[in-house]
Every structure is written in structure tokens, then in C-alpha cells.
Design a protein around this nucleic acid. Structure first.
Length: 553
DNA sequence: ACCGTCGGCGCC
DNA sequence: AAAGGGCGCCGACGGT
């Protein structure tokens, strides 16, 4: 049964209502009493909590030891429905912009203040009645062409919002000692001032080889000039461009850039700023990417370089079960396009090898770059060369992405499998009043937008699969832990600590690691069924139980 | 001192 | 002629 929470000044109102939106009961609560009240209701029966923003309500509940099973994140759902092609005629989509179109509370605000203080510091919520918004959303879904899919998408988005808050609450176990060791090994000891000694050493070699004693390697402009003075024909300082060049200054320069990146992005400053009490706690932003992928805020959580993953270490007596979906996007493409040959190749644990074995291409790299080219719209290099062969072997898959690209070029909206739609297109390459130069620009933009929409349908559907995987896993982990809400809600039992598009990390007591691994596999299979029913597409995952994150794969 | 943009690069 | 999608973060740089 849904229960809507809203707040005006110090008073929190909880409205119980039925599935038709009919109000059944109404309670007024204070912030202090809220967690106990929620816990009581949750124990009684699994409720669906309806609130404006999960990031606004859930941290304080978790802090008080209350975990909830289900919610509706009205703002995230509103954003999807507002733009979805399949709800375009609904009241929700056609109304003027309103409060529900405003952005969610800044993740930064949540990370800057103690979780426990959220209710104290927040200004009163002046939101519209959440039950009214719930009814509008329900009507939009019911009136759409594919209500089942949309409902699944909204459920996935909402459970993702719960997971995002829970992962921040739990934090990713991180050893500052190990991190410091790694840095010291690669860079030398932490410098009091200036560059670490190993960076300084490779820099000295660069300067000597270029005969540029005062060269500042951190300034791209100056670096290009210095390289040119030394007779090197470069136009930028990008690593891939430098790699083409044979010169004794290049290897140490590339080494410098590598070390410099580590030092500035994930060095001691990063450690000081983002790791406290042995936990890295970034904010995750569900739906933060147009395609539906998550974004993150703070510490570059979704770009943790492999170099430092050895510092991700479980608590004593605990371990990590790390799982990632193998070739997720190609499998998703096989499913959404209904390409039987591609689905057959996906029967293999390694889909790219499956493509080789089926005779579509000769080598695994050809399969990989060919597929990525099809999904991204690549036309050069290996992916461009493989294009005709991929098209011949998997015609329906290629037609699917080509069709999405053409729609984008025409300025049309495309949608994922569950119904998340792309932003409106821009420009019109057929504008007859445009000048030649403008027209070239428009056509170029149109092609660029076509690559975006081509990728959107695949990346966005992959994100939906990942949400379902995660949601399914979350429920299984809770049941593994006993499902007793009176116990410590999260960190005393197996729990998610990291999510990276197609990869999950569970922090678990060693004794249940094997059960967690099984839960990950079952959840992957369930996600496939939820999205695609009986379609013959397998979603293979690789699972590893490890004592540090770098040991996974 | 502060702010927005850019080059570059990490991840998927 | 150039020709791969999506992000976040860092330092440099140029402006105020």
C-alpha cells in the first residue's frame, strides 16, 4: 500500500492511499518520530513510500536504522514521464513547467552536512501534494502505449534511488594505508612541497632530451611549443598523438603524464578529501546521465582508476563479491532488435568469442571493435572496416541502430526498451534558408546527433537492465541477511557498496559469499526476464570473490 | 580572489 | 575534411 510523505514547516504528513489514489488515512508526525513510525509500518507490511526525493528522506531514515523495501521517487519518475514519447499526450506531460520539474536537491548539500542533520537544516518542503502527483503519474503510465514497461522503468529508477543512498550510507571500504603505499611506490613519498620525487625524476629526463631546462609540462600550450622547438611535429599533447612519435623524450613524457594524473586526481589530496573512517562515500546520482545511466558527485566515483583499486579492501572477516555483466551492450542490442543470430552468439559466456565461432568475424578484437563501432557509430579504423561484416552477420541489429541514427538525424526522438526518451533533437539539415556553411554545420550536427540517438537506445536500455539487476539483487541480499528490520539494517549483512554501469560490488561476511555470488547470477537472469520476457538472450556475468577490488578481472 | 572554458584523461 | 556514445575532475588559462 502506498504511503505518501510530505512536509510543511515542522509537520510531516503521511497519507495512506490505495492503488486508485483514494486517501484512506492521514497522520501528522514530527521529524523525530518519523523513523520509528516508518519502521513500524514497514514491519507490518512492505509499504511503498511515496516521496518527492529519496535523497531528501532516506538518509535520515537509514541513519536511524530504518531500511525500506520500496519507494516511488516522484521527481525522478516525473522527469522520465515528462519527456517520454509514450506519455506525450498526458496531463503530466502537457502541463506548464512546475515544481516537479525543478532539479532535485543538490547532492553536494547532502554531502556537506551530516546525514543526521538533514531534517534539521532543510528548509520546509513547499512541494505540491505528493498524492496528486502520484495520481498524475499513474494516469500518464496507464494511458501510455506500453504501461507495463514504463511501470517497470519507474520501479527500477526508484529502487536505484534507494540503492544510491544506501551505498553512500555504507561507503566503499577503503584502506588509506594501502592507498598511501601504492602512491609511495609509484610516486615516491608524499611531498611537503613541489612534485613527488619520481615525477620530478622523469620530468628531468624529458627536459634533458628536449634540451628545455625550464619546460613546464603541465601547460599544454608550453609543452606543444617545447616539443616543436625540439623538432617534433605535434599539434597537441594528447597521449595517443605522442605515442605515434619516435623520440627519446616521449617515453618519459608519457610516464610523467601518467604519474601526474594519478597524483592530481587520486593522490594524497584525494585521499584526505574523500576517505574518512576507512570509507569512500561519494554521492551517486541516479538518472544523472541523459541515457539513464547514473552520474556521481564528488571524488570521481565512477572513474576510479585501476591503479588505486588495490586500496579497496574489505573489513576483517568480510570479503567482496564483484560481478560485471559481460558484453552488456551487445547483448542488449541483440535483445531489443530481436536479432536471432546475434542472440545465438550471445549464448556463449564470451559473446565476442561467440561471434568468432559463428563465423561472423575472424578474431575477437574484430568482433569487439565491430560491435562497438555499430553501437557508437564508428566509421574509422577497425570498427569501420568491420561494419559491412557485422551488417551481413547481424542484419536486424544493424538495422535497429541505423534506424535510431536516422531518426536522430531527422531531429526525432528515440526511446529505450522501457520507454525513456531522448531529448528533443536540434537543427534541421533540410532548412532551405540556411547558407552553405550553415548547412554543412547543420548536417555535421545532424550526424553527431544521429550518433547520439544510435547510442542512446543501447546505452539507455543497458542502464535499465542494470537497474533491474541491482533492484533484484538488493531484495535477495536483504533476504540473505535474514530480512529482519530490527537488526542493523545494512552494514551487518551483505550489502552493495559500488555500482559502475554494468558492475556491482557486494561487501559481505565471508561465510555468505557463495550465496551472494549465486544471488548475483539469479538477479542477472531475473533482470533479463523482466525486460525481455522469454527472448532467447542470455545475460552472462562474471563473478569473483576477492580480497581487494584490483583482483577482480 | 573568483569564475567559466578548455585540454586532457580516467571510467563504462 | 573528418569522420565513436556517455560522464566527472584536474590544472592551466584568460577574463573580470
Amino acid at each position: 500500500m502506498p504511503i505518501a510523505l510530505s512536509r510543511a514547516a515542522a509537520v510531516i504528513t503521511a497519507v495512506e492511499f490505495d492503488d486508485s489514489g483514494e486517501e484512506l488515512a492521514r497522520h501528522e508526525l514530527g521529524a523525530v518520530g518519523l523513523p520509528a513510525w516508518v519502521r513500524e509500518r514497514e514491519l507490518l507490511r512492505r509499504q511503498r513510500w511515496v516521496w518527492n526525493d529519496t535523497v531528501r528522506w532516506y538518509p535520515a531514515l537509514l541513519e536511524a536504522g530504518v531500511r525500506v523495501e520500496r519507494c516511488v521517487d516522484l521527481r525522478l519518475c516525473h522527469r522520465i514521464l515528462r519527456r517520454a514519447a509514450s506519455t506525450a499526450g498526458s496531463e503530466l506531460a502537457t502541463a506548464p513547467r512546475g515544481r516537479w520539474d525543478a532539479s532535485a536537491p543538490a547532492a553536494a548539500a547532502a554531502s556537506d552536512i551530516p546525514i543526521a542533520a538533514l531534517f534539521d537544516l532543510d528548509p520546509p518542503l513547499a512541494d505540491d501534494d505528493p498524492v496528486a502527483e502520484w495520481r498524475r503519474q499513474r494516469a500518464a503510465v496507464d494511458g501510455s502505449a506500453a504501461p507495463g514497461r514504463l511501470a517497470l522503468l519507474l520501479a527500477g529508477e526508484s529502487v536505484g534511488a534507494l540503492v544510491a543512498v544506501e551505498m553512500r550510507f555504507a561507503g566503499l571500504p577503503w584502506s588509506p594505508e594501502r592507498h598511501d603505499e601504492l602512491l609511495t611506490e609509484l610516486l615516491g613519498p608524499r611531498p611537503v612541497a613541489g612534485r613527488p620525487v619520481k615525477m620530478e625524476a622523469v620530468l628531468a629526463r624529458v627536459r634533458a632530451e628536449l634540451d628545455e631546462p625550464g619546460l613546464n609540462p603541465d601547460s599544454p600550450v608550453e609543452l606543444v611549443k617545447g616539443l616543436q622547438r625540439a623538432g617534433l611535429r605535434v599539434t597537441s599533447t594528447r597521449s595517443w598523438e605522442l605515442k605515434q612519435i619516435e623520440h627519446p623524450a616521449i617515453p618519459p613524457l608519457l610516464e610523467y603524464k601518467k604519474l601526474s594524473r594519478l597524483y592530481s586526481a587520486n593522490g594524497w589530496h584525494w585521499l584526505d578529501e574523500w576517505v574518512t573512517d576507512g570509507r569512500f562515500r561519494p554521492s551517486y546520482v541516479p538518472g544523472g546521465v541523459v541515457t539513464g545511466r547514473w552520474a556521481s558527485d564528488g571524488g570521481g566515483a565512477l572513474q576510479l582508476p585501476k591503479q588505486v583499486r588495490a586500496a579497496v579492501i574489505p573489513d576483517p572477516g568480510w570479503t567482496f563479491v564483484v560481478a560485471d555483466a559481460s558484453q552488456l551492450e551487445p547483448r542488449v542490442l541483440a535483445a531489443i532488435s530481436g536479432d536471432a543470430a546475434m542472440a545465438r552468439a550471445g549464448q556463449a559466456q564470451d559473446m565476442y568469442q561467440g561471434m568468432v565461432d559463428s563465423g561472423a568475424v575472424e578474431t575477437r578484437p574484430q568482433a569487439k571493435y565491430g560491435m562497438l563501432g555499430a553501437i557508437y557509430g564508428g566509421t574509422t579504423g577497425e570498427s569501420g572496416r568491420m561494419r559491412p561484416r557485422i551488417a551481413r552477420a547481424f542484419p536486424k541489429a544493424m538495422e535497429y541502430v541505423e534506424s535510431a541514427a536516422r531518426a536522430g538525424e531527422r531531429g526525432e526522438v528515440v526511446s529505450t526498451w522501457l520507454g525513456r526518451s531522448s531529448p528533443p533533437g536540434r537543427g534541421d539539415a533540410h532548412d532551405e534558408t540556411a547558407s552553405d556553411a550553415q548547412l554543412r554545420q547543420l548536417r555535421s550536427d545532424a550526424r553527431g546527433w544521429g550518433r547520439f540517438t544510435r547510442n542512446f537506445v543501447v546505452q539507455g536500455t543497458a542502464a535499465e537492465w542494470a537497474l533491474c539487476w541491482m533492484g533484484s539483487l538488493r531484495r535477495r541480499l536483504w533476504e540473505l541477511g535474514g530480512g529482519d528490520a530490527a537488526a542493523d539494517p545494512l552494514t551487518a549483512r551483505p550489502h552493495l557498496v559500488f555500482f559502475l554501469h554494468d558492475e556491482l560490488i557486494v561487501h559481505t561476511p565471508v561465510g555468505v559469499a557463495e550465496a551472494v555470488a549465486e544471488a548475483l547470477r539469479e538477479s542477472a537472469a531475473e533482470a533479463g526476464r523482466l525486460l525481455f520476457g522469454a527472448a532467447p538472450v542470455e545475460f552472462a556475468i562474471t563473478v569473483a570473490t576477492v580480497d581487494s577490488y584490483d583482483q577482480a578481472k
